[in-house]
Simulated scan of single mutants.
Amino acid sequence: MSSARVVVLTVLSMVAFAANSLLCRVALRGTGIDAVTFTSIRIVSGAVVLSLVVWGQGRRVRHAGNWLSALALFVYAAGFSFAYLSLPASTGALLLFAAVQATMIGYGIHIGERLSGLQWIGFVCALAGLVGLLLPGLSAPPPGGAALMLAAGIAWGVYSLRGKGAKNPTMETAGNFMRAVPFAAALSAIAHMHAALDWPGLAYAIASGAVTSGIGYALWYATLPQLKVANAATVQLSVPVIAAIGATVFLGESLTPRILLASAAILGGVAVVVLKRQRSASIEKT
Rank of each mutant, 00 (worst) to 15 (best):
L133M: 14
N176R: 11
L134S: 01
A166F: 13
A207C: 06
N176Y: 05
M178A: 15
N176Q: 14
G132H: 00
V181L: 13
T173K: 10
A174R: 04
L135K: 09
G137M: 04
G163I: 10
F183A: 06
I215V: 15
Y159G: 11
S188P: 11
G129C: 03
G214N: 10
G129I: 09
S208I: 08
P142C: 12
L219T: 00
A218L: 08
P169R: 04
Y159V: 09
R179M: 02
A147K: 04
A207V: 05
A203T: 13
A166Q: 13
S139L: 06
G214S: 10
T170Q: 05
L135C: 11
G153W: 07
P142T: 11
I215G: 06
R179V: 03
L133F: 13
T170P: 03
F123T: 09
T173F: 12
V124S: 01
T173E: 11
L219Y: 07
A140I: 00
G157H: 14
P143Y: 14
L219Q: 02
A166D: 15
L197E: 06
S160H: 14
G153L: 06
L150G: 09
I154E: 02
G144S: 14
G145Y: 07
L127Q: 09
A186R: 10
H194S: 15
G129M: 05
G132N: 07
S160W: 12
A189Y: 14
L202R: 04
L118E: 08
G129D: 04
A166W: 13
V158G: 12
A210C: 11
I215C: 11
A140C: 05
P136C: 02
L135T: 15
L134A: 03
M193E: 15
A185M: 14
L219D: 02
Y217H: 12
L138T: 08
L150C: 11
G122C: 00
H194D: 15
A166N: 12
P136Q: 07
A128Y: 08
G209H: 03
S213N: 06
